[in-house]
Computed example of a mutant assay.
Amino acid sequence: MRFDPWNPDFVAFPYDAYAELRREAPVGFFEPTGQWLVARHADVNALLRDRRLGRTYLHVATHEEFGRLSPPEFQEPWWRVNNAGMLDLEPPEHTRLRRLVSRAFTPRMVESLRPRVKEIAGGLVDAFVAQGGGDLIAEVAEPLPVTVIAEMLGVPESDRGLLRPWSADMCGMFELNPSLEAQHAAVRAATEFAGYLRGLAAERRGDPGDDLISALAQIEELTEDELVGTCVLLLNAGHEATVNVTGNGWWALFRNPGELARLRADHSLLPTAIEELMRWDTPLQMFERWVLEDIEIGGVAIPKGVEVALLFGSANRDPEVFVEPDRLDLGRADNPHISFGAGIHFCLGAPLARIELAESFGALLTKAPAMELVKEPVWKPGYVIRGLESLEVAI
Score class of each variant (00 low, 15 high):
Met1Asp: 07
Tyr18Met: 12
Ala19Pro: 02
Gly28Lys: 01
Pro32Ile: 14
Val38Pro: 10
Asp43Lys: 01
Val44Met: 05
Ala46Val: 08
Ala46His: 13
Arg52Trp: 11
Gly54Val: 01
Tyr57Trp: 13
His63Cys: 05
Glu64Ser: 14
Glu65Gln: 15
Glu73Ile: 10
Glu73Tyr: 04
Glu73His: 06
Gln75Gly: 04
Glu76Thr: 14
Pro77Cys: 04
Gly85Ile: 09
Glu90Trp: 04
Pro92Trp: 11
Pro107Tyr: 08
Met109Asn: 11
Pro115Ser: 12
Glu119Ala: 14
Gly123Val: 07
Asp126Glu: 14
Asp126Cys: 12
Asp126Met: 00
Val129Asp: 01
Val129Ile: 14
Ala130Met: 05
Gly134Val: 11
Asp135Gly: 03
Ile137Pro: 05
Val140Pro: 09
Thr147Arg: 06
Glu151Tyr: 01
Val155Thr: 11
Pro156Gly: 00
Arg160Tyr: 08
Arg160Pro: 11
Asp169Ser: 15
Met173His: 04
Glu175Asp: 15
Leu176Thr: 12
Asn177Asp: 11
Ala182Pro: 00
Gln183Lys: 13
Ala190Thr: 06
Thr191Glu: 13
Glu192Trp: 07
Ala194His: 13
Tyr196Met: 06
Leu197Thr: 09
Arg198Ala: 06
Gly199Asp: 04
Glu203Asn: 08
Arg205His: 05
Asp207Met: 02
Leu212His: 08
Ile213Val: 15
Ala215Arg: 15
Ala217His: 07
Glu221Leu: 01
Glu224Cys: 05
Asp225Ile: 03
Glu226Gly: 13
Leu227Phe: 11
Leu227Ala: 11
Gly229Cys: 08
Leu235Val: 03
Asn236Cys: 03
Asn236His: 07
Ala237Leu: 11
Ala241Thr: 15
Thr242Ala: 13
Gly249Asp: 06
Trp250Ser: 01
Trp250His: 02
Trp251Tyr: 08
Trp251Cys: 05
Pro257Ser: 06
Asp266Leu: 03
His267Arg: 15
Leu269Phe: 03
Ile274Arg: 06
Glu276Phe: 11
Glu276Lys: 02
Thr282Ala: 00
Thr282Glu: 10
Phe287Tyr: 11
Phe287Met: 13
Glu288Asp: 10
Ile297Glu: 01
Pro303Ser: 09
Lys304Thr: 14
Glu307Gly: 10
Val308His: 09
Val308Ser: 01
Val308Pro: 10
Pro319Asn: 07
Phe322Tyr: 08
Leu330Ile: 15
Ala333Phe: 07
Asn335Glu: 03
Asn335Arg: 03
Ile338Trp: 07
Ala342Asn: 14
Leu348Ser: 01
Leu352Pro: 09
Ala353Ile: 02
Arg354Met: 12
Arg354Asp: 00
Arg354Leu: 15
Ala358Leu: 10
Ser360Tyr: 00
Leu364Asp: 02
Leu365Asn: 12
Lys367Asn: 06
Pro369Cys: 07
Pro369Lys: 09
Val378Trp: 05
Pro381Met: 10
Gly382Ile: 02
Gly387His: 12
Glu392Cys: 00
Val393Asp: 07
Ile395Cys: 14
